[in-house]
Every structure is written in C-alpha cells, then in structure tokens.
Nucleic acid binder design. Structure first.
Lengths: 112, 112
DNA sequence: ACGAGATACCTCATCTGTCAAGGTATCTCG
DNA sequence: CGAGATACCTTGACAGATGAGGTATCTCGT
C-alpha cells in the first residue's frame, strides 16, 4: 500500500458513510470498491473496517442486517441512517476544510 | 478548534518539515504560524509538537541548537537536514495522492 | 471428489500519534 | 510587584489502525 493508513486516519468513517450513501452494502464489497477507486493505492484493513462498522453502529450512524441471498457466504449489510447522513455531510465539510488548511500549511517555495 | 488533530494525524511531520524548509525556527513560533495560517481553525498541541520534534530528530530529519539571543526565554531552534528535505518532498507527494484518493472515495451524488 | 482460492465474517493484542494536565523559567508592561 | 506572554518539557491516558489469527461457505479446475 502506497498510502499509509495513518494518512487517512480520522477519515475512515467519512469514506464508509459516503459509500453507504449510494446504497446498502457489506464489508467485503466496500473494501473492494475502495481498493478499486484508489487504483489499489489504498485499502482499509479488514480489522479497521469492522472496527469502524461497530463504532458507527454504536453511535447510530448505520444499521445492519443479515442478507438472505441464500447463495455464497453470508453477508451482513449496512445501511446509513438519518443521523449517519447528517454526520456524513459534516465529515465531508471537515474534509474540505482539512484540505484547505493543509494546502496552506504545506505551501513551499520552489524546490532547489 | 474546528479541525480535530486526528484529521491531520500522519501529516504533522509534513507540516513541520515544510515550515522548516523556509528557514530555521523554534517550537513556539511554528505553533503560532500554524495557528495563523489556518486562521485559528487548527493548532497543534504543544505535547504533539514536541513529540514530533523528538521523532524527527531521532530519524535524522532535523537538528537542533539552542539560540543565543540573550534576550527572552531560551529557544531551541530546529533546522531541516538533507534527509529531512527528501522526506519532506516524499510527504508532500503523499499528501497530493491522499487528496486525490480521498476526493474520489468521498464523491457523492447530489444531496437530497 | 478434492484442493485451492475467492468470498465473507469476526476478535484480540499491540502500536503509534494526539492530547490533557502538569511543570519550569524568563521577559514585558502597567 | 503581578499578570500575561514567551518558551520549553514530560507523563499517562486514550483512540484508531493493524497484524495475526480464526471460522465458514462457495466456485472451479483437475
């Protein structure tokens, strides 16, 4: 992985919620999507992902239910709640702000 | 503080190094500059800052020396090393990549 | 029918960086 | 002289990321 997890730390909740905003999904799939969208440069570790799900469910941002597909390994689906939507919007705004601030702080003159 | 430190976590080294690239400085001043540049929206806590200095010095990215100003409280100045410059450049590139990936991962359709 | 590999979930102990809280000492200015 | 700014530092607690380990099912080639 070229992008260390600590660089994303604090933003995993935002990533997960933003994904769930597009529709219910389950852990394995979300991980795949993240890996694909980042062209493999970043992937959440499973432990991180499930820790996040647990945390998000505890604070009421998501709910979960077992899929009844009948085929394949059982899946636990997650759905975003109204609280989750609000939290997500807040986190997205924070990300925009973080970007602005970081860009200003990292501004460098020319490289010699 | 509107931006929690954890959102910046993993980027503090980059911030400090990018600052030192502009010239030697000391803890208190760097903290002030960060606060100013971010319009007060973000500030490193002192403990975090000094922890980072220690870490960066241990891995050879910066060196330190006591200022001999004679007036005011004593200051420990920090200077970036050649290793530090390389590390800084790498971290800046990582930040650009992090931004790209995050923006892609957080992409949302319209808000309803 | 069997083994490999993919799918899919989960837990626990450990590590690392952040931070609250506390401390020391000097200088400036009213 | 006292308050507040300047300036440094350490310690312990905490939270999130992760390595390592575990379970179970399905698919596909041989």
């Amino acid at each position: 992985m070229s992008i260390a997890g600590d660089l994303i730390r604090g933003h995993t909740d935002a990533i997960i919620l933003a994904r769930l905003l597009r529709g219910d999904s389950y852990g394995y799939e979300i991980n795949k999507v993240i890996s694909t969208l980042s062209s493999g440069r970043f992937e959440l570790k499973e432990a991180t992902l499930y820790t996040a799900f647990k945390r998000l469910e505890e604070i009421g941002c998501i709910t979960s239910y077992w899929g009844n597909s009948g085929v394949g390994a059982r899946r636990r689906y997650y759905a975003i709640t109204q609280t989750g939507r609000q939290t997500c919007q807040k986190l997205l705004e924070e990300w925009q702000e973080t970007k602005e601030i970081m860009d200003k702080l990292l501004e460098v003159e020319e490289w010699k």
